[in-house]
Nucleic acid binder design. Structure first.
Lengths: 189, 189
DNA sequence: GATCGCATGTAAGTGGTTACATGATTTA
DNA sequence: TAAATCATGTAACCACTTACATGCGATC
């Protein structure tokens, strides 16, 4: 049981920050919470329809004169209540699935070089993500430091930074360990 | 595209460590790699059937005399090849979904106390997981330090420990931040 | 005139969980 | 004798991704 549509609450949550279209919501998620949460169009649009039918959001056909499309949604009072109810409930513990670790666990089945490559790839990806997050952090401090949400935004960003840094450190450590596994192959030239 | 049945490879990988029944595989996963990977019966049994039909594993009806059930599977040579091929492919980047951070991102919608409770709960869970992992690490060092897989097992364990520790530190930091948000409510008694 | 960004949506497929059904054997 | 553990399996359901279809307007 449990775990009912977290997309619902993502959408409601984003709409507390202001009215937005489905497209806008997608973009917002991508640009601000991408490092710990994702949503696809295939989830967002049906969710918006559903929420509208329940009166938790209200959609308005926008676009000055010409546009037939583009519906801008706003959260309603009952939408806010629904969101708050969910926010008060304890969070589900994560179900981890880390493919890299699975491959490394079976690492002895292939050559050390293969595993070293995996770790190097991981390191690059993590370093890139970390850099992106640090840019977000800087932007937040410069542009959003006086908004009520600021301390909470920084909280989530810091979590991301800390876990990226931990992963980075682990990569170096892991690479060293594997390199020591092959004490002499072409060493000493 | 991509991401074809990782259960397949989990099963094949576990079977490189010795012949096992579906039930055994489930238990092994639970007891050794639970902190970064999980599998359910609903995945394992169909996967075993499929793998057997492809000749990547071979099943033998076991159970000294009485048992009608209990099928013990062994990995075949082509199974090993298939596994190795997969192990050489680069791993898929994780798609993160951290419900706790989602709730905290929308934290201003509820009282600080609610958010503090979430963090406290998280802290407890992480501390528990960390303790369990450290027991596994100790057990590995005592009982498995001479197996060929040992360095790789320790690698994955260390990753778990490092990220748990990072999360723990973050919890304390985050709780402090939120507490500072309410500078005086009942302070000074 | 082609491609890119904006914009909404649907359909198919998949990976995975949960609940259920069944039954033997062991332990309390 | 009741419960827990061993053991296999299926069916239903769910969340989510991907690909596709459509079309407008701006830019190259």
């Amino acid at each position: 049981m449990a775990r009912g549509g977290r997309t619902r609450y993502t959408v409601l949550g984003v709409l507390t920050l202001g009215p937005r279209s489905g497209y806008d919501i997608k973009k917002f998620v991508e640009e601000s919470i991408n490092y710990f949460w994702r949503e696809s169009f295939g989830q967002i649009y049906p969710a918006l329809k559903q929420l509208a039918s329940e009166g938790l959001v209200s959609g308005e056909e926008a676009g000055s004169t010409e546009g037939p499309n583009r519906v801008v949604y706003s959260i309603t009072e009952s939408g806010r209540r629904e969101l708050r109810t969910w926010l008060r409930e304890p969070h589900e513990p994560e179900v981890p699935r880390v493919e890299l670790l699975l491959k490394l666990f079976f690492g002895p089945q292939v050559s050390p070089d293969v595993n070293l490559e995996h770790i190097a790839r991981e390191r690059d990806q993590v370093a890139e993500s970390l850099a992106a997050l640090e840019e977000i952090a800087a932007w937040l401090r410069e542009e959003r430091s006086s908004t009520p949400g600021f301390p909470y935004y920084m909280l989530t960003v810091r979590q991301g930074i800390l876990s990226y840094e931990a992963r980075l450190a682990w990569c170096d450590d892991a690479a060293r360990t594997i390199r020591n596994l092959v004490p002499a192959k072409e060493s000493g030239l």
